[in-house]
Design a protein around this nucleic acid. Structure first.
Lengths: 230, 230
DNA sequence: CCAAAAGTGTTGGGACTACACCCATGA
DNA sequence: TCATGGGTGTAGTCCCAACACTTTTGG
């Protein structure tokens, strides 16, 4: 029935990397400028071919590390893109992933075969290579919907953060304004944030208490099937 | 940078087909019994290789039609499975889909290269070929979560149905008991169901009013971004 | 003392849950 | 007339949204 002589598309992975930029209070996406054809001088997501002895998950993590030095971050499969003409060199199917990282921990670092690496705000995305704009659109949609019912926003923040920063992050991702009191009540009621005896420093106003995401508690609650909702 | 001399995994699609079986009041999954090795005599989802001139979406629809005669149904990409040893013949990556169909409209029909085709309840799934049990688990999880916030339950029902059948369907998928009055109120409040001037026939009790899913209304509401919630 | 953000409670309305009886029909 | 599911309303509770002022700190 099946045969190995069947023609095979090439298989790649692409990785959309989101980060929270505290300075500009905006979500950013990491792009690398391609040095070679096709799409030389265009911006694209880090990615590359899947090896014969690795899963696509592994390939995505490997490519991410090779091209940006980033590893051990939240990463999830997004969708498999397969338009016949999405790559001018021939038939290439790509499994897209998205990652959420903390910009302080992972500064952008030039990749070997790229001219440069840069963070872009979602409203300043340049012309992208391949069908990467479509991939980005879907990744952002996924981020928006997932952030509402799974506590993945924390992946974008430093380990210790004030509630106001978390709120700002949610406001940026969801593109809405949230009520401060209601937001605090709701987020604290989940019990997923541990208040610390530490405070902001060097701010020209009352220092905010820092919180940290309680991963143990989250795992425990997940096991007994709870629901999170912003 | 990229090269076409790169080794390529084979690429397939697999399709999990869910249906609502009114007779047994249960969700069923269509499996085909494999005639040939590997996994001869094991049950598996319909699927097959992706051609060089088609998208994976197209391949999934094509394989579904070729192997079961079913076409023009709700079908969505689920996940891409890529364990290195998932196929004993070598490296095969598979993009899984799930479909929701109406069992009356699409009776199971024997496929060319299968010994037989059968519907199985979720509690009577036999040993499956490849990693298809894992695929099924993920597909069912997706169905369960999606049915709560997108009106996809209707894809499983005939065009005209009484509310009690819709409720039964939800109860089976979500594996819970729902309150009749609250369910009716909530589902009618969405405005997505059009009441008809038709009723059940040949039932040994008061005949229930039939309803139909209002697709136009759904599309209109979707455009203006509404949210649906069971 | 001023500017800037931190932090805090209450109230009204809408939504959800729980719950029980009569109705229509065919056998 | 009986058995079976169809169909309906209400009351109590909880959750959510809306809203403004005082506190703390550094400059």
């Amino acid at each position: 029935m099946y045969t190995y002589e069947y023609p095979r598309p090439a298989l790649t992975v692409d990785c959309v990397i989101f980060a929270w930029d505290k300075a500009s209070e905006a979500i950013k996406v990491m792009l690398i400028e391609r040095a070679h054809e096709p799409f030389a001088n265009h911006w694209a997501f880090p990615g590359g071919f899947v090896d014969m002895d690795e899963t696509v998950d592994t390939a995505a993590a490997r490519e991410l590390e090779e091209e940006t030095g980033i590893k051990n971050v939240f990463m999830e499969q997004l969708y498999t893109f397969s338009s016949v003409d999405r790559d001018p060199r021939g038939r290439v199917v790509s499994v897209a992933y998205y990652a959420l990282i903390n910009m302080q921990k992972h500064p952008a670092k030039a990749a070997s075969d790229a001219k440069s690496v840069k963070w872009f705000g979602l409203s300043e995305i340049p012309a992208l290579a391949f069908d990467h704009q479509q991939i980005l659109d879907m990744a952002y949609e996924r981020l928006k919907s997932k952030v509402r019912y799974q506590p993945i926003g924390f992946e974008l923040l430093p380990r210790k953060f004030p509630l106001s920063e978390l709120q700002l992050l949610y406001e940026q991702i969801l593109n809405t304004k949230l009520d401060k009191r209601n937001f605090r009540r709701k987020i604290l009621k989940t019990g997923l944030l541990k208040p610390l005896e530490e405070f902001q420093t060097r701010v020209a106003h009352r220092a905010a208490r820092l919180y940290t995401f309680d991963d143990k508690k989250y795992k425990a609650l997940t096991r007994e099937g709870f629901s999170f909702e912003i």
